[in-house]
Amino acid sequence: MRKQLVAWTILTSAIVAIAVWSVLGPPDHVAGPHLPSRDLTASVR
């Protein structure tokens, strides 16, 4: 029962990840703790 639950959870999360990937496309930037706007203002200064 527990293995079935783990397998179902992994399968569901994989399907959700594929759906999000197909809708949004691959990420263009690496997510980090800083905002892109902050980098923009730093480069202007």
Rank of each mutant, 00 (worst) to 15 (best):
W21Q: 12
G25D: 04
V16E: 00
S22R: 09
P36S: 03
A7V: 07
D39W: 08
A31D: 12
S37G: 08
A7C: 06
L35A: 13
L24H: 06
D39G: 05
W8D: 14
L24V: 09
T12I: 09
G25T: 03
A17Y: 02
Q4D: 12
P27D: 00
G25R: 04
H34Q: 11
A42M: 07
W21T: 14
S43Y: 07
H34E: 11
T12Q: 05
H34N: 09
W8I: 09
R38Y: 09
S22P: 02
H34R: 10
V44L: 14
V16S: 06
R2G: 10
T41L: 14
A19D: 02
T9I: 11
K3E: 13
A14N: 07
V23N: 03
L11W: 07
V30D: 00
S22G: 04
A31S: 14
D39N: 08
W21A: 14
P27R: 04
T12M: 08
A14T: 15
W8K: 13
T12G: 13
Q4S: 12
T12H: 03
V6L: 15
T41D: 09
M1N: 12
A14E: 05
H29S: 12
I18G: 03
P26H: 06
D39L: 11
H29W: 10
I10Y: 01
V16D: 03
I10L: 15
T12Y: 02
M1R: 11
V20S: 05
V44T: 10
V23C: 02
L24E: 10
L24F: 15
L35Y: 07
Q4R: 11
T12W: 03
I15G: 03
I15A: 15
V6E: 12
I18A: 15
G32D: 06
V20E: 02
H34Y: 13
V44R: 11
L5Q: 15
T9G: 01
V6I: 14
R2S: 12
P27I: 00
S37N: 07
P27K: 01
L5H: 08
I15T: 08
S37V: 10
V30C: 02
G32T: 13
L11F: 12
T12P: 00
A19W: 01
G32F: 01
P36G: 03
H29F: 14
A17R: 01
L40Q: 09
I18V: 14
A14D: 04
V23A: 11
A17H: 02
V23L: 13
V16M: 08
G25Q: 01
A17D: 00
L11T: 12
T12C: 08
V16L: 15
L11Y: 06
P27F: 01
T41R: 13
A7R: 10
A17E: 02
L35K: 07
V23D: 04
V44Y: 05
